[in-house]
Write a protein that binds this DNA or RNA. Structure first.
Lengths: 230, 230
DNA sequence: ACTCAGTAGACTGTAGACGATAGCCAAAAG
DNA sequence: CTTTTGGCTATCGTCTACAGTCTACTGAGT
């Protein structure tokens, strides 16, 4: 056992660098999702390496991973290009996410625990507060936290991992909609909590399916509007 | 237009090596799934490189990718270890695969086309022939092909990609069961074809869910039996 | 038996070099 | 004038070598 005599938390836990490839990965993902790197753009290894102050190797490993997760396309002997999203792919991602989230809700209802219900209620309250204060960023964050909690209570790590991947990509396509939509969906969250609390798997399934379907509809509304404008 | 005057196919089209990391990836995946590399085993980069006759770099990139797909665990500053499957994870994978396959069946029913139905019937016939001839390998292959065809007809690339990943991992845990199970499930395949042909999404969903549930049950039977033996 | 410094093995990252490949463009051939 | 050829450039794919660092083990000393 450690017995340094120091109170916990006083030592700043000198920053562990962690594998460099991880940080490069994070940095690139941030650049892509923030659209600083635009879809279709050619990512030159040496440029990225120079820009980030590292050598080519960590960059290559990060690109490798980004490629398996669908963020960049790796063309042999040409290099990495930021993936270009399409309407079709966006819709497919929404379908899959809806499927995964719905299953998570069902499983969560099967595993309902008092503590878990309370956590969901707390997160819901946080979200509703944020709505009242018109703090869009906080609403979006609370919404993500709520869904993550449901996913966690489903108790299926494989499901959670896939959902996390899909979710992040959806969010990339979808950022503008999420902001307008987040403001109006908290009533459905309450209904879901009731269903989970009463261990009603059918109701949880139905509510989550409707919830995700609304999301998908609002995505399409927006896409159609954008198309009409053009 | 090409006009070499050469009849097609006479030129052997000298093999292009393709990126080395791909071949290393394929080789390692084969070694893992064939259990030549055992779960928990430490994969030393230099050893693999030497054994495969390549340098460390392609090995590292292959390991990177295997790690994102769950085949190996990458512990920082220690290296790569073949992922150790657990009963819990196997069950979670089966749940997720069932979910994805069921959705695929539903979508396929919505997209039913004459040509597609015919392809499914053909594959089904191939499988039944293999059963009659007691060719277990052919049965397993036909079963995989049938499910892949359903997935393809669902017309959702994202879904298909996730399913392919999950499916391969399931198969790793599951190989012995698949062999005994494959022999008895072709009647359900016929039922599924009927449901798809009549565009009955509800029936397709129900049948595929039952089908995957049977699979899961036989997995657990076997796991329980193995536990009882031990 | 326990502690702890030292050491070996392995990973992580850097640097430089070389051949291979795709895309482009100008010059030569028909 | 059109097509083909050849060469040029940027970049990738790979290899080699080396330095830094982490982990786990070992063994002496208490």
């Amino acid at each position: 056992m450690l017995s340094t005599g120091l109170p916990q938390g006083t030592v700043p836990k000198l920053e562990r660098p962690g594998p460099l490839r991880e940080r490069v990965y994070d940095a690139l993902l941030e650049l892509i999702t923030s659209r600083a790197l635009r879809p279709g753009q050619h990512l030159v290894e040496t440029e990225l390496a120079g820009h980030l102050g590292v050598s080519r190797q960590p960059v290559r490993e990060a690109l490798q991973r980004l490629s398996t997760e669908g963020w960049v396309d790796l063309r042999p002997a040409q290099g990495a290009f930021v993936h270009e999203p399409t309407e079709e792919e966006a819709d497919q991602l929404l379908v899959v996410r809806a499927l995964l989230e719905t299953e998570a809700a069902r499983l969560a209802a099967g595993n309902a625990s008092g503590r878990g219900i309370q956590r969901l209620k707390d997160l819901c309250a946080v979200g509703e507060d944020a709505v009242r204060e018109d703090d869009v960023d906080a609403v979006v964050a609370a919404n993500a936290a709520f869904h993550a909690e449901v996913m966690s209570q489903a108790g299926n790590a494989v499901l959670a991992e896939l959902a996390a991947q899909v979710d992040q990509r959806v969010r990339w396509y979808y950022t503008p909609v999420a902001r307008s939509r987040g403001m109006q969906s908290w009533e459905e969250h309450r209904e879901l909590i009731d269903a989970v609390a009463s261990q009603d798997e059918a109701a949880a399934t139905r509510i989550m399916r409707a919830h995700t379907e609304h999301t998908r509809a609002s995505y399409h509304e927006r896409a159609d509007r954008a198309e009409a404008d053009a």
